[in-house]
Design a protein around this nucleic acid. Structure first.
Lengths: 238, 238
DNA sequence: GTCTATACACAGATAGAC
DNA sequence: GTCTATCTGTGTATAGAC
Protein backbone atom coordinates (compact mmCIF):
# COMPACT_ATOMS: atom_id res chain seq x y z
CA UNK A 1 0.00 0.00 0.00
CA UNK A 2 1.25 3.42 -0.96
CA UNK A 3 1.36 6.31 1.49
CA UNK A 4 -0.58 8.66 -0.77
CA UNK A 5 -3.71 6.51 -0.75
CA UNK A 6 -3.43 6.03 3.00
CA UNK A 7 -3.20 9.74 3.55
CA UNK A 8 -6.39 10.44 1.64
CA UNK A 9 -8.26 7.96 3.76
CA UNK A 10 -6.91 9.45 6.98
CA UNK A 11 -7.17 13.21 6.83
CA UNK A 12 -10.90 13.24 7.59
CA UNK A 13 -10.61 10.92 10.58
CA UNK A 14 -7.85 12.98 12.09
CA UNK A 15 -10.22 15.73 13.11
CA UNK A 16 -12.78 13.53 14.84
CA UNK A 17 -13.71 14.85 18.24
CA UNK A 18 -15.72 11.89 19.42
CA UNK A 19 -13.32 10.18 21.79
CA UNK A 20 -14.78 9.52 25.23
CA UNK A 21 -11.81 10.96 27.11
CA UNK A 22 -12.27 14.06 25.02
CA UNK A 23 -15.98 14.38 25.73
CA UNK A 24 -15.07 14.29 29.41
CA UNK A 25 -13.28 17.59 28.85
CA UNK A 26 -15.94 18.96 26.53
CA UNK A 27 -18.07 20.17 29.40
CA UNK A 28 -15.34 22.52 30.62
CA UNK A 29 -15.61 24.43 27.34
CA UNK A 30 -17.75 27.53 27.59
CA UNK A 31 -18.50 27.70 23.86
CA UNK A 32 -21.85 26.16 22.94
CA UNK A 33 -21.81 25.77 19.18
CA UNK A 34 -20.26 22.46 18.17
CA UNK A 35 -18.92 23.61 14.81
CA UNK A 36 -17.13 26.60 16.35
CA UNK A 37 -15.47 24.34 18.91
CA UNK A 38 -14.29 21.89 16.26
CA UNK A 39 -12.91 24.64 14.04
CA UNK A 40 -11.13 26.61 16.74
CA UNK A 41 -9.83 23.62 18.65
CA UNK A 42 -8.29 22.41 15.42
CA UNK A 43 -6.56 25.75 15.00
CA UNK A 44 -5.45 25.80 18.65
CA UNK A 45 -4.07 22.25 18.53
CA UNK A 46 -2.12 22.94 15.36
CA UNK A 47 -0.70 26.15 16.79
CA UNK A 48 0.25 24.34 19.99
CA UNK A 49 2.13 21.66 18.07
CA UNK A 50 3.88 24.17 15.87
CA UNK A 51 5.17 26.32 18.70
CA UNK A 52 5.95 23.47 21.09
CA UNK A 53 7.95 21.54 18.53
CA UNK A 54 10.06 24.65 18.07
CA UNK A 55 10.74 25.73 21.62
CA UNK A 56 9.06 23.17 23.86
CA UNK A 57 5.58 23.05 25.38
CA UNK A 58 6.69 24.44 28.69
CA UNK A 59 8.42 27.36 26.97
CA UNK A 60 5.36 28.17 24.87
CA UNK A 61 3.54 31.10 26.46
CA UNK A 62 -0.15 31.78 26.15
CA UNK A 63 0.78 34.96 24.33
CA UNK A 64 2.69 32.90 21.75
CA UNK A 65 -0.31 30.65 21.35
CA UNK A 66 -2.67 33.59 21.10
CA UNK A 67 -0.62 35.15 18.31
CA UNK A 68 -0.17 31.93 16.35
CA UNK A 69 -3.82 30.86 16.65
CA UNK A 70 -5.15 34.33 15.87
CA UNK A 71 -7.32 34.38 18.99
CA UNK A 72 -7.04 36.65 22.00
CA UNK A 73 -5.95 35.30 25.38
CA UNK A 74 -9.48 35.73 26.63
CA UNK A 75 -10.88 33.69 23.75
CA UNK A 76 -8.35 30.91 24.30
CA UNK A 77 -9.40 30.48 27.89
CA UNK A 78 -12.95 29.80 26.85
CA UNK A 79 -11.74 26.59 25.15
CA UNK A 80 -9.71 25.23 28.05
CA UNK A 81 -9.20 25.99 31.69
CA UNK A 82 -5.41 26.16 31.53
CA UNK A 83 -2.30 24.92 29.84
CA UNK A 84 -2.50 21.50 31.44
CA UNK A 85 -6.08 21.04 30.30
CA UNK A 86 -5.12 21.95 26.75
CA UNK A 87 -2.47 19.24 26.80
CA UNK A 88 -4.91 16.63 28.09
CA UNK A 89 -7.43 17.32 25.36
CA UNK A 90 -4.84 17.30 22.60
CA UNK A 91 -3.35 14.03 23.79
CA UNK A 92 -6.61 12.15 24.23
CA UNK A 93 -7.99 13.23 20.88
CA UNK A 94 -4.93 12.26 18.87
CA UNK A 95 -4.27 9.08 20.81
CA UNK A 96 -7.72 7.69 20.11
CA UNK A 97 -7.49 8.41 16.38
CA UNK A 98 -4.11 6.67 16.19
CA UNK A 99 -5.25 3.59 18.03
CA UNK A 100 -8.42 3.21 15.98
CA UNK A 101 -6.65 3.35 12.64
CA UNK A 102 -3.77 1.08 13.59
CA UNK A 103 -6.11 -1.65 14.79
CA UNK A 104 -8.35 -1.29 11.77
CA UNK A 105 -5.57 -1.92 9.25
CA UNK A 106 -3.98 -4.81 11.11
CA UNK A 107 -7.34 -6.55 11.42
CA UNK A 108 -7.75 -6.48 7.64
CA UNK A 109 -4.81 -8.81 7.06
CA UNK A 110 -5.24 -12.55 7.49
CA UNK A 111 -1.68 -13.85 7.29
CA UNK A 112 0.58 -13.26 10.30
CA UNK A 113 3.60 -12.15 8.30
CA UNK A 114 1.35 -9.69 6.50
CA UNK A 115 -0.04 -8.44 9.77
CA UNK A 116 3.49 -7.71 10.97
CA UNK A 117 4.40 -5.93 7.74
CA UNK A 118 1.19 -3.94 7.90
CA UNK A 119 1.67 -2.99 11.53
CA UNK A 120 5.11 -1.59 10.73
CA UNK A 121 3.97 0.14 7.58
CA UNK A 122 0.79 1.68 8.98
CA UNK A 123 2.52 2.90 12.10
CA UNK A 124 5.03 4.70 9.91
CA UNK A 125 2.30 6.11 7.69
CA UNK A 126 0.38 7.32 10.72
CA UNK A 127 3.40 9.04 12.16
CA UNK A 128 4.08 10.57 8.77
CA UNK A 129 0.55 11.95 8.48
CA UNK A 130 0.57 13.27 12.05
CA UNK A 131 4.29 13.88 12.50
CA UNK A 132 3.96 17.05 14.56
CA UNK A 133 1.82 15.27 17.13
CA UNK A 134 3.94 12.11 17.32
CA UNK A 135 7.04 14.21 17.85
CA UNK A 136 5.31 16.37 20.42
CA UNK A 137 3.92 13.42 22.30
CA UNK A 138 7.31 11.75 22.50
CA UNK A 139 9.20 14.83 23.61
CA UNK A 140 6.73 16.40 25.99
CA UNK A 141 4.77 13.78 27.83
CA UNK A 142 7.82 12.73 29.87
CA UNK A 143 7.74 15.89 31.92
CA UNK A 144 4.04 16.02 32.59
CA UNK A 145 1.90 15.34 35.63
CA UNK A 146 1.34 11.78 36.89
CA UNK A 147 -1.77 10.45 35.12
CA UNK A 148 -0.83 11.92 31.74
CA UNK A 149 2.61 10.36 31.93
CA UNK A 150 1.12 7.01 32.82
CA UNK A 151 -1.05 7.14 29.71
CA UNK A 152 1.96 7.90 27.56
CA UNK A 153 3.83 4.91 28.95
CA UNK A 154 0.80 2.67 28.52
CA UNK A 155 0.57 3.80 24.94
CA UNK A 156 4.21 2.90 24.31
CA UNK A 157 3.72 -0.54 25.80
CA UNK A 158 0.44 -1.08 23.96
CA UNK A 159 1.97 -0.95 20.47
CA UNK A 160 4.94 -2.90 21.67
CA UNK A 161 2.62 -5.70 22.77
CA UNK A 162 1.03 -5.77 19.34
CA UNK A 163 4.41 -6.50 17.76
CA UNK A 164 5.43 -8.99 20.44
CA UNK A 165 2.15 -10.89 20.03
CA UNK A 166 2.55 -11.13 16.25
CA UNK A 167 6.13 -12.37 16.57
CA UNK A 168 5.13 -14.92 19.12
CA UNK A 169 2.12 -16.15 17.11
CA UNK A 170 4.38 -16.38 14.11
CA UNK A 171 6.83 -18.52 16.00
CA UNK A 172 4.06 -20.95 16.92
CA UNK A 173 3.07 -21.24 13.26
CA UNK A 174 6.67 -21.87 12.36
CA UNK A 175 7.13 -18.85 10.14
CA UNK A 176 9.24 -16.87 12.63
CA UNK A 177 12.33 -18.00 14.49
CA UNK A 178 12.49 -18.37 18.22
CA UNK A 179 13.78 -15.02 19.52
CA UNK A 180 13.28 -12.72 22.46
CA UNK A 181 10.05 -11.33 21.03
CA UNK A 182 9.57 -8.64 23.63
CA UNK A 183 13.05 -7.29 22.98
CA UNK A 184 12.59 -7.48 19.23
CA UNK A 185 9.29 -5.65 19.56
CA UNK A 186 10.84 -2.88 21.55
CA UNK A 187 13.59 -2.49 18.96
CA UNK A 188 10.98 -2.28 16.22
CA UNK A 189 9.36 0.54 18.19
CA UNK A 190 12.69 2.33 18.43
CA UNK A 191 13.14 2.15 14.68
CA UNK A 192 9.59 3.37 14.06
CA UNK A 193 10.09 6.28 16.40
CA UNK A 194 13.26 7.37 14.69
CA UNK A 195 11.22 8.12 11.60
CA UNK A 196 9.25 10.91 13.20
CA UNK A 197 11.90 12.03 15.68
CA UNK A 198 14.55 12.63 13.01
CA UNK A 199 12.35 13.74 10.19
CA UNK A 200 14.74 16.55 9.23
CA UNK A 201 17.43 13.96 8.53
CA UNK A 202 15.35 11.66 6.36
CA UNK A 203 13.78 14.57 4.51
CA UNK A 204 17.18 16.00 3.64
CA UNK A 205 18.26 12.62 2.30
CA UNK A 206 15.10 12.14 0.27
CA UNK A 207 14.21 8.90 1.99
CA UNK A 208 10.51 8.30 1.40
CA UNK A 209 8.31 6.78 4.05
CA UNK A 210 7.70 3.82 1.75
CA UNK A 211 11.37 3.05 1.35
CA UNK A 212 11.99 3.44 5.07
CA UNK A 213 9.14 1.01 5.71
CA UNK A 214 10.57 -1.50 3.25
CA UNK A 215 14.00 -1.22 4.81
CA UNK A 216 12.74 -1.84 8.33
CA UNK A 217 10.67 -4.78 7.20
CA UNK A 218 13.66 -6.35 5.53
CA UNK A 219 15.85 -5.92 8.61
CA UNK A 220 13.25 -7.55 10.79
CA UNK A 221 12.49 -10.34 8.36
CA UNK A 222 16.19 -11.09 7.95
CA UNK A 223 16.35 -11.49 11.68
CA UNK A 224 13.06 -13.27 12.37
CA UNK A 225 11.84 -15.22 9.35
CA UNK A 226 12.58 -18.94 9.34
CA UNK A 227 14.97 -20.00 6.58
CA UNK A 228 13.16 -20.72 3.33
CA UNK A 229 10.12 -18.67 4.38
CA UNK A 230 11.35 -15.46 2.82
CA UNK A 231 7.78 -14.38 2.25
CA UNK A 232 7.07 -11.86 -0.46
CA UNK A 233 10.43 -10.37 -1.31
CA UNK A 234 10.90 -6.90 0.12
CA UNK A 235 13.16 -4.39 -1.48
CA UNK A 236 15.90 -3.56 0.96
CA UNK A 237 16.91 -0.21 -0.47
CA UNK A 238 15.63 2.42 -2.84
CA UNK B 1 34.38 -6.77 27.15
CA UNK B 2 32.19 -6.58 30.24
CA UNK B 3 30.50 -3.36 31.30
CA UNK B 4 31.87 -3.50 34.83
CA UNK B 5 35.50 -3.27 33.72
CA UNK B 6 34.62 -0.47 31.32
CA UNK B 7 32.93 1.48 34.03
CA UNK B 8 35.96 1.38 36.29
CA UNK B 9 38.12 2.75 33.53
CA UNK B 10 35.65 5.55 32.81
CA UNK B 11 34.55 7.12 36.04
CA UNK B 12 37.75 9.11 36.47
CA UNK B 13 37.71 10.50 32.93
CA UNK B 14 34.12 11.60 33.25
CA UNK B 15 35.05 14.46 35.53
CA UNK B 16 37.81 15.90 33.37
CA UNK B 17 37.47 19.60 32.90
CA UNK B 18 40.15 20.06 30.30
CA UNK B 19 38.14 20.40 27.15
CA UNK B 20 38.99 23.49 25.10
CA UNK B 21 35.37 24.56 24.65
CA UNK B 22 35.07 24.33 28.39
CA UNK B 23 38.16 26.40 29.08
CA UNK B 24 36.61 29.08 26.89
CA UNK B 25 33.87 29.37 29.51
CA UNK B 26 36.24 29.00 32.44
CA UNK B 27 37.15 32.67 32.40
CA UNK B 28 33.55 33.68 33.11
CA UNK B 29 33.76 31.89 36.44
CA UNK B 30 34.51 34.19 39.34
CA UNK B 31 35.89 31.46 41.59
CA UNK B 32 39.69 31.21 41.54
CA UNK B 33 40.56 27.93 43.18
CA UNK B 34 40.57 25.10 40.65
CA UNK B 35 39.60 22.34 43.05
CA UNK B 36 36.58 24.26 44.32
CA UNK B 37 35.40 24.83 40.78
CA UNK B 38 35.77 21.14 39.88
CA UNK B 39 33.95 20.00 43.00
CA UNK B 40 31.06 22.43 42.83
CA UNK B 41 30.62 22.28 39.07
CA UNK B 42 30.32 18.52 39.44
CA UNK B 43 27.58 18.99 42.02
CA UNK B 44 25.83 21.63 39.92
CA UNK B 45 25.93 19.50 36.77
CA UNK B 46 24.55 16.47 38.56
CA UNK B 47 21.78 18.51 40.15
CA UNK B 48 20.92 20.05 36.77
CA UNK B 49 20.62 16.63 35.16
CA UNK B 50 18.55 15.25 38.01
CA UNK B 51 16.00 18.06 38.02
CA UNK B 52 15.89 18.50 34.25
CA UNK B 53 15.30 14.84 33.58
CA UNK B 54 12.33 15.04 35.92
CA UNK B 55 10.60 18.20 34.83
CA UNK B 56 12.60 19.55 31.88
CA UNK B 57 15.47 22.02 31.75
CA UNK B 58 13.26 24.96 30.91
CA UNK B 59 10.98 24.17 33.85
CA UNK B 60 13.88 23.91 36.29
CA UNK B 61 14.13 27.15 38.25
CA UNK B 62 17.31 28.52 39.76
CA UNK B 63 15.67 28.03 43.13
CA UNK B 64 15.20 24.33 42.38
CA UNK B 65 18.83 24.10 41.40
CA UNK B 66 19.92 26.04 44.45
CA UNK B 67 18.05 23.65 46.75
CA UNK B 68 19.25 20.48 45.02
CA UNK B 69 22.88 21.57 44.79
CA UNK B 70 22.97 22.92 48.33
CA UNK B 71 24.26 26.30 47.22
CA UNK B 72 22.55 29.67 47.42
CA UNK B 73 21.38 31.48 44.30
CA UNK B 74 24.17 33.98 44.76
CA UNK B 75 26.78 31.23 44.89
CA UNK B 76 25.41 29.55 41.79
CA UNK B 77 25.81 32.73 39.78
CA UNK B 78 29.51 32.83 40.54
CA UNK B 79 29.92 29.61 38.54
CA UNK B 80 28.02 30.67 35.45
CA UNK B 81 26.57 33.84 34.04
CA UNK B 82 23.09 32.45 33.44
CA UNK B 83 21.05 29.40 32.65
CA UNK B 84 22.14 29.30 29.04
CA UNK B 85 25.78 29.44 30.03
CA UNK B 86 25.29 26.55 32.42
CA UNK B 87 23.88 24.46 29.60
CA UNK B 88 26.77 25.30 27.30
CA UNK B 89 29.37 24.24 29.85
CA UNK B 90 27.60 21.02 30.71
CA UNK B 91 27.22 20.06 27.06
CA UNK B 92 30.76 20.81 25.99
CA UNK B 93 32.31 19.02 28.93
CA UNK B 94 30.33 15.81 28.50
CA UNK B 95 30.50 15.82 24.73
CA UNK B 96 34.26 15.92 24.69
CA UNK B 97 34.57 13.05 27.17
CA UNK B 98 32.21 10.91 25.10
CA UNK B 99 33.98 11.55 21.85
CA UNK B 100 37.41 10.86 23.28
CA UNK B 101 36.47 7.51 24.75
CA UNK B 102 34.51 6.26 21.77
CA UNK B 103 37.38 6.96 19.38
CA UNK B 104 39.91 5.44 21.73
CA UNK B 105 38.17 2.07 21.94
CA UNK B 106 37.40 1.79 18.23
CA UNK B 107 41.02 2.55 17.37
CA UNK B 108 42.17 -0.40 19.47
CA UNK B 109 40.50 -2.95 17.21
CA UNK B 110 42.18 -4.02 13.99
CA UNK B 111 39.48 -6.06 12.26
CA UNK B 112 36.58 -4.13 10.69
CA UNK B 113 33.86 -6.44 12.01
CA UNK B 114 35.39 -6.05 15.47
CA UNK B 115 35.46 -2.28 15.09
CA UNK B 116 31.76 -2.29 14.31
CA UNK B 117 30.96 -4.53 17.27
CA UNK B 118 33.09 -2.38 19.54
CA UNK B 119 31.54 0.85 18.30
CA UNK B 120 28.08 -0.48 19.15
CA UNK B 121 29.13 -1.92 22.47
CA UNK B 122 31.14 1.05 23.69
CA UNK B 123 28.46 3.52 22.68
CA UNK B 124 25.99 1.54 24.78
CA UNK B 125 28.41 1.31 27.70
CA UNK B 126 29.06 5.04 27.55
CA UNK B 127 25.38 5.86 27.56
CA UNK B 128 24.92 3.45 30.44
CA UNK B 129 27.67 5.09 32.49
CA UNK B 130 26.41 8.60 31.72
CA UNK B 131 22.71 7.86 31.20
CA UNK B 132 21.41 11.07 32.78
CA UNK B 133 23.45 13.20 30.46
CA UNK B 134 22.66 11.23 27.29
CA UNK B 135 18.98 11.43 28.08
CA UNK B 136 19.21 15.11 28.89
CA UNK B 137 21.14 15.92 25.77
CA UNK B 138 18.65 14.11 23.56
CA UNK B 139 15.58 15.66 25.11
CA UNK B 140 16.74 19.20 25.70
CA UNK B 141 19.11 20.32 22.99
CA UNK B 142 16.32 20.39 20.39
CA UNK B 143 14.77 23.48 21.95
CA UNK B 144 17.93 25.46 22.51
CA UNK B 145 19.46 28.47 20.80
CA UNK B 146 21.02 28.18 17.34
CA UNK B 147 24.70 27.31 17.84
CA UNK B 148 24.02 24.80 20.62
CA UNK B 149 21.43 23.02 18.49
CA UNK B 150 23.82 22.87 15.58
CA UNK B 151 26.40 21.17 17.78
CA UNK B 152 23.84 18.59 18.88
CA UNK B 153 22.95 17.77 15.28
CA UNK B 154 26.61 17.59 14.30
CA UNK B 155 27.16 15.18 17.18
CA UNK B 156 24.32 12.96 15.96
CA UNK B 157 25.73 12.90 12.46
CA UNK B 158 29.27 12.36 13.68
CA UNK B 159 28.59 8.98 15.28
CA UNK B 160 26.37 8.04 12.38
CA UNK B 161 29.28 8.62 10.01
CA UNK B 162 31.47 6.34 12.09
CA UNK B 163 29.02 3.48 11.58
CA UNK B 164 28.45 4.26 7.90
CA UNK B 165 32.21 4.32 7.26
CA UNK B 166 32.74 0.96 8.94
CA UNK B 167 29.90 -0.64 6.98
CA UNK B 168 31.20 0.76 3.75
CA UNK B 169 34.81 -0.30 4.44
CA UNK B 170 33.49 -3.73 5.33
CA UNK B 171 31.66 -3.97 2.03
CA UNK B 172 34.88 -3.22 0.15
CA UNK B 173 36.66 -6.00 2.04
CA UNK B 174 33.83 -8.35 1.19
CA UNK B 175 32.77 -9.05 4.76
CA UNK B 176 29.59 -6.94 4.64
CA UNK B 177 26.83 -7.03 2.07
CA UNK B 178 26.01 -4.16 -0.22
CA UNK B 179 23.33 -2.15 1.59
CA UNK B 180 22.30 1.45 2.06
CA UNK B 181 25.00 2.05 4.65
CA UNK B 182 23.89 5.51 5.62
CA UNK B 183 20.40 4.25 6.33
CA UNK B 184 21.68 1.25 8.24
CA UNK B 185 23.91 3.53 10.29
CA UNK B 186 21.03 5.79 11.21
CA UNK B 187 18.98 2.79 12.29
CA UNK B 188 21.85 1.58 14.44
CA UNK B 189 21.85 5.01 16.10
CA UNK B 190 18.12 4.72 16.74
CA UNK B 191 18.60 1.39 18.46
CA UNK B 192 21.48 2.72 20.54
CA UNK B 193 19.46 5.71 21.62
CA UNK B 194 16.55 3.58 22.72
CA UNK B 195 18.76 2.11 25.41
CA UNK B 196 19.17 5.37 27.29
CA UNK B 197 15.85 6.90 26.35
CA UNK B 198 13.80 3.96 27.66
CA UNK B 199 15.97 2.93 30.52
CA UNK B 200 12.96 2.43 32.84
CA UNK B 201 11.66 -0.23 30.48
CA UNK B 202 14.84 -2.24 30.17
CA UNK B 203 15.59 -1.93 33.86
CA UNK B 204 12.17 -3.31 34.78
CA UNK B 205 12.74 -6.26 32.46
CA UNK B 206 16.21 -6.97 33.79
CA UNK B 207 17.84 -6.59 30.42
CA UNK B 208 21.52 -5.95 31.03
CA UNK B 209 23.51 -3.61 28.86
CA UNK B 210 25.65 -6.55 27.75
CA UNK B 211 22.70 -8.57 26.54
CA UNK B 212 21.20 -5.57 24.78
CA UNK B 213 24.54 -5.02 23.05
CA UNK B 214 24.70 -8.65 21.96
CA UNK B 215 21.16 -8.50 20.63
CA UNK B 216 21.79 -5.39 18.54
CA UNK B 217 25.00 -6.81 17.16
CA UNK B 218 23.24 -9.98 16.09
CA UNK B 219 20.43 -8.07 14.37
CA UNK B 220 22.91 -5.97 12.45
CA UNK B 221 25.16 -8.89 11.57
CA UNK B 222 22.18 -10.93 10.36
CA UNK B 223 21.39 -8.08 8.06
CA UNK B 224 24.87 -7.04 6.94
CA UNK B 225 27.34 -9.91 7.16
CA UNK B 226 28.05 -11.76 3.92
CA UNK B 227 26.87 -15.38 3.96
CA UNK B 228 29.46 -17.69 5.46
CA UNK B 229 31.22 -14.84 7.26
CA UNK B 230 29.25 -15.23 10.45
CA UNK B 231 32.22 -13.94 12.41
CA UNK B 232 32.52 -14.82 16.03
CA UNK B 233 29.11 -16.13 17.01
CA UNK B 234 27.10 -13.66 19.04
CA UNK B 235 24.46 -14.74 21.47
CA UNK B 236 21.14 -13.37 20.28
CA UNK B 237 19.34 -13.50 23.59
CA UNK B 238 20.09 -13.91 27.25
C1' DG C 1 -17.92 34.61 21.23
C1' DT C 2 -14.29 37.66 21.25
C1' DC C 3 -11.90 41.49 22.76
C1' DT C 4 -8.72 44.76 25.97
C1' DA C 5 -6.90 45.71 30.27
C1' DT C 6 -5.18 44.23 34.42
C1' DA C 7 -4.09 41.37 38.78
C1' DC C 8 -0.86 38.68 40.78
C1' DA C 9 2.72 35.19 41.19
C1' DC C 10 7.07 33.75 40.20
C1' DA C 11 11.07 33.52 37.34
C1' DG C 12 16.07 35.09 36.48
C1' DA C 13 19.50 37.93 38.00
C1' DT C 14 22.30 41.20 41.06
C1' DA C 15 24.08 44.04 45.12
C1' DG C 16 26.35 44.11 49.00
C1' DA C 17 27.00 42.14 53.81
C1' DC C 18 29.61 38.55 55.98
C1' DG D 1 33.33 32.07 48.45
C1' DT D 2 28.90 32.14 50.13
C1' DC D 3 24.99 34.21 51.92
C1' DT D 4 20.30 37.11 52.23
C1' DA D 5 17.50 40.53 50.37
C1' DT D 6 15.63 42.66 46.55
C1' DC D 7 14.80 44.43 41.68
C1' DT D 8 12.53 43.77 37.41
C1' DG D 9 10.63 41.32 33.67
C1' DT D 10 7.41 38.00 32.09
C1' DG D 11 4.01 34.33 32.60
C1' DT D 12 -0.77 32.62 33.69
C1' DA D 13 -5.22 33.71 34.33
C1' DT D 14 -9.50 36.62 34.91
C1' DA D 15 -12.95 40.59 34.78
C1' DG D 16 -15.87 42.98 32.28
C1' DA D 17 -16.83 45.79 27.95
C1' DC D 18 -18.44 45.02 23.26
Amino acid sequence: MKYSSFKKRITDCAKDFCDEDFLENRKNIRIKKESTVAKNLGIIFDATLKISNNKGFQAMTMRDLSAEAGLSMGALYSYFSGKEDLLKMLQSQRRSVTKKILEEYIAREADIADKLRTAIRIHLYLSEAMQPWFYFSYMETKNISGPEQAKAIESELYTERIFAKLLSDGEKSGIFLRRNHQLTASIIKAMLQDWYLKRWKYAKRNISVESYANYLISIIENFCLSAGKTGKPQKSEE
